[in-house]
Simulated assay, not measured.
Amino acid sequence: MNRLCYCTNVHPAEDLPGILDQLDSYAVGVREALGVDRLGLGLWLAAEAAAGLAADSSARTKLRSELDARGLDVLTLNAFPYGGFHAEVVKLAVYEPRWTDRRRLKYTMDCATVLTDLLPDDAPYGSISTLPLGWRSPWTDADDTACLDSLAELTRSLRGTPIRLAVEPEPGCVLDTVADAVAWLAARVDPEYVGICLDTCHLAVSFADPVGTVEAIRDAGLQVFKVQASSALHVDDPATARDALAEFAEPRYLHQVRELRPDGSVLKADDLPEALDRLPGEGPWRVHFHVPLHAAPDKPLESTNHVITEVLRAVEPDRTVEVETYTWNVLPHRQQNLVDGIAAEMAWAAGEIQ
């Protein structure tokens, strides 16, 4: 089975007719541009669409048929954004509802029902990526307990199915880094059903060692169920690159920034405008802005593609790899159309898979 796919959260539709229209407009074109008979998808379903499909088995059968007719295979679902992912301003709203809220549990269980029926027959498993519990504040011990209870209930519903939950650490959240996620999950969840979604942009922003991170996940008895192949912005000398960085400060999404200090510690800012105002800019920056895999940003900015390469060489060879550049539509000076751009990203990622 081809384990490479691209995430459809780059497209805005949140109802089934709109999703199919976008697959016709973009995914089919990507498949044709790549010259392949089948194209893998990481499907994003907003909560309302997931609930409708989960409640109607005939609708799931019809969707599977529509996907087959287009040469599209759903390998994974992205259940991080609950809805409204293409609103004018998303920012912190993307982390709601948290895993303390029963709506998050229901949404994820709905996604599991849908993915079970959409997954290709030869797929060893299907992954659902989810947020790292919620934004870091406010957060209490009672919130921890509520999350564990919900994850335990979800796990019970997944037993006997091929569906796995992949928790996706993200800067600024309760599980800010992969190390945070490993420490929180290890010995608290069933590792057969709950593991890690390793987003390589988020990993790069944390300045963590890619190979050491994969080894730490494995040593803790957890699994990487999904790699999100995504690249962050990097700049060695942010003090001399303020104008170039400012072009990426856009109003829709949160773009967390980390600055590496000489002693190895990391300074933090929750968004790029805050970083430009407050961080000293004396060490290199990594910015949570998913930039296209195949096209390096203009100097003095760089991408962190090397992190993707190192992770893909370290993880198990059958892991799902999802290209997730949801920021195509907010890139400054975008020149490439979306079909050609996604196809070029997929071709780049395919070349990195061993």
Rank of each mutant, 00 (worst) to 15 (best):
E215L: 14
D56T: 06
A232D: 08
A181M: 02
V339C: 08
R159A: 07
V307R: 04
F289Y: 15
V287I: 14
L119T: 10
G351K: 02
V36K: 14
L34Y: 11
G283V: 01
E66V: 03
I196Q: 04
S157L: 06
A93Q: 13
R136S: 09
S206C: 11
E250W: 01
D340L: 12
D176I: 02
W44Q: 13
V189N: 02
A239H: 01
L45V: 08
P17C: 11
E215K: 15
A232I: 05
A216E: 14
A241M: 08
V211R: 15
L158C: 12
Y95L: 11
S57Q: 14
P162S: 07
G281E: 02
S231Y: 04
Q22H: 14
G35Y: 10
V307C: 03
D340E: 15
A229W: 08
D243G: 01
D68F: 01
I308E: 10
P332G: 05
F248P: 07
A241C: 06
T309N: 02
R218G: 03
H234Y: 15
G126W: 10
S58V: 09
R258L: 04
P120K: 09
L34Q: 00
A204M: 10
E66R: 13
A296Q: 12
E259W: 01
L203P: 00
V10C: 15
V211Y: 08
V94C: 04
G40L: 11
A112Q: 04
A69S: 13
